[in-house]
């Protein structure tokens, strides 16, 4: 387990409902991801992956346990952060299975929207967006609308959006599902490069057999519990 951590989860629990109908989606989840590290989170359907992702993303409230983001405890039996929306905006990046870019904003503004929401001046936010687009080799599509991009380009733009506020952690939900092998591995390559460059902890939820061998560490989630194992760390 890494010593310094981007995100650390200890004994996280989540129960839906109450009484006889209660369902324990997460029982005892432990996890730690260091800055600059990309880990895989895999498990069968209904194992609790999405619930874990929603808890990590501060979208639903866990029932118990503790979560630390960087040096800040964000959950310890209750939320320790008052403005969860601002925390999601500033500290957590999201990459979805489909890119879900805002269709009426061009590529630059799709990325720059987050810093703008955080109060940054438009020019500065766009400058930062362009830097990321260059880093991801899509700067030439900066003025394009999302509908004009290929699937791979859209996913790279969504990665740029997730990283634009330099969050300590990025949650990627099946980011390679709609892509072929070559593009899926390209996305993993980009995630690893970005994680290292921005010292971001990235958790990739995936079923994708093509990319699972690339992780150095993998968390298996079964019946609401996580088990850590070493991955193959195959070069991509």
């Amino acid at each position: 387990m890494a010593e310094a951590h981007g995100i650390r989860i200890e004994g996280l629990r989540k129960r839906y409902g109450s009484g006889d109908t209660a369902v324990d989606a997460l029982k005892e989840v432990d996890m730690a991801v260091a800055p600059g590290e990309v880990v895989g989170l895999i498990g069968p359907s209904g194992s609790g992956k999405s619930t874990l992702l929603k808890c990590l993303g501060a979208v639903i409230e866990p029932t118990g346990g503790r979560m630390t983001l960087g040096d800040q405890v964000i959950y310890d039996g209750a939320w320790k952060i008052r403005d969860l929306r601002a925390m999601r905006r500033d500290k957590i990046g999201f990459i979805f299975q489909a890119p879900y870019l805002i269709p009426f904003l061009d590529v630059t503004d799709n990325i720059a929207l987050l810093p703008m929401l955080a109060g940054q001046p438009n020019a500065e936010a766009r400058k930062r967006a362009l830097e990321l687009l260059e880093a991801l080799d899509v700067a030439h599509r900066a003025k394009a609308m999302p509908s004009q991009l290929s699937g791979g380009e859209q996913q790279r733009v969504s990665i740029a959006r997730a990283l634009v506020n330099r969050p300590p952690v990025v949650l990627a939900d099946e980011p390679t599902a709609p892509l072929d092998s070559e593009r899926a591995l390209a996305v993993i390559r980009i995630l690893n490069r970005m994680a290292e460059q921005y010292q971001t902890a990235i958790i990739v939820v995936t079923h994708d057999e093509k990319i699972i061998p690339t992780f150095r560490r993998i968390y298996h989630i079964r019946d609401g519990r996580t088990e850590e194992e070493a991955g193959e760390g195959r070069p991509f």
Partner: peptide, 16 residues
């Protein structure tokens, strides 16, 4: 709806 969900998830305020 999906775009609004994404906007909310990435921290857009309700008033926005």
């Amino acid at each position: 709806i999906r775009e609004i969900a994404v906007l909310k998830l990435i921290g857009t305020r309700n008033r926005t």
